[in-house]
């Protein structure tokens, strides 16, 4: 068993992550966990999907194995493969197999980025069978009750080509995430960015303005994550205008007109 020697403890989250619930998502996720149902998280980038998973893993006291999906991700990358070691073929568990064996939470981030044929491998795990066939070894792994599968994707910017297949979709309990309400987002930016409340409020207002531009050429507005990053810079002594420029304005776009307009918003707010 080649894979078993990866220390799972590294994946355990010891310190309670900061997470402010937007609704009843924590209760729903816990209920899904108890019933052995997989989770589908959808929402724009930087709105707290990954943080939610960390929080959930901490709350359930399970290790969290995260796989960032990309379009070259193959089935072997998830399930495992044979490697040659000292002239011998040695089996190496992939992250998914590892999570199933250890009863951990496996989180496939941005799952639509993976090829459709790769995504199919999670099908038997994501329904009531809860099993993972490892063809190359002729093994059928049955997931323990502690195992949980979660996937996330961003319905906002991906093209129609990169949509989830209905057969994949219809296996999950889906939680929709969005940017938090104004007050909540201010709380989050205060807490995470370590800011005064009024500065945090202005930052959130700026983010809302950029989110209004969705139909005017900006694919996605400033995320909560960007605001927190700007907050950290401000906390470190960078002046507000500069911090907003480097942490909020510039990451959003390369279009000079758009940049000038967002910079105008910064100038108008602070």
């Amino acid at each position: 068993m080649g894979g078993a020697n990866i220390p799972l403890e590294e994946h355990r989250i010891v310190k309670k992550p900061y997470y402010l619930a937007q609704g009843s998502e924590v209760e729903i996720a816990c209920a899904a966990y108890r019933s052995g149902l997989p989770l589908l998280l959808k929402g724009p980038t930087g709105c707290g999907k990954t943080r939610f998973m960390q929080y959930l893993a901490w709350k359930l006291d399970r290790p969290l194995i995260t796989v960032s999906c990309h379009d070259d991700l193959s089935t072997s990358d998830l399930v495992g493969r044979y490697l040659i070691r000292a002239g011998e073929a040695v089996w190496m568990d992939g992250p998914l197999t590892l999570a199933v064996r250890a009863g951990a939470i496996c989180y496939l981030d941005e799952v639509v980025e993976a090829r459709k044929d790769t995504t199919v491998v999670i099908h038997p795990l994501a329904d009531d069978r809860r099993e993972l066939p490892i063809e190359k070894r002729g093994e059928l792994l049955i997931a323990p009750p502690e195992f949980m599968l979660a996937v996330s994707y961003n319905p906002g910017y991906q093209s129609v080509l990169k949509d989830l297949k209905p057969s994949t979709r219809q296996r999950f309990v889906a939680l929709s995430f969005n940017y938090p309400e104004l007050e909540q987002e201010v709380d989050i930016v205060c807490q995470e960015g370590g800011l005064e409340r009024d500065v945090a409020l202005s930052l959130v207002k700026l983010a809302i303005m950029t989110r209004n531009l969705k139909d005017s050429g900006l694919p996605e507005g400033a995320s909560t994550r960007l605001l927190i990053q700007a907050g950290k810079l401000i906390g470190d002594g960078v002046d507000i205008q500069t911090a907003c420029r480097v942490a909020v304005v510039e990451p959003l776009s390369d279009d000079p007109e758009m940049l000038a307009a967002v910079e105008d918003m910064v100038g108008s707010l602070f």
Binding site: M209, L213, S216, E257, A260, A261, M265
Partner: peptide, 9 residues
Amino acid sequence: RLLTFIRGV
């Protein structure tokens, strides 16, 4: 630039 500005605001 102005249009984007006012739409955002």
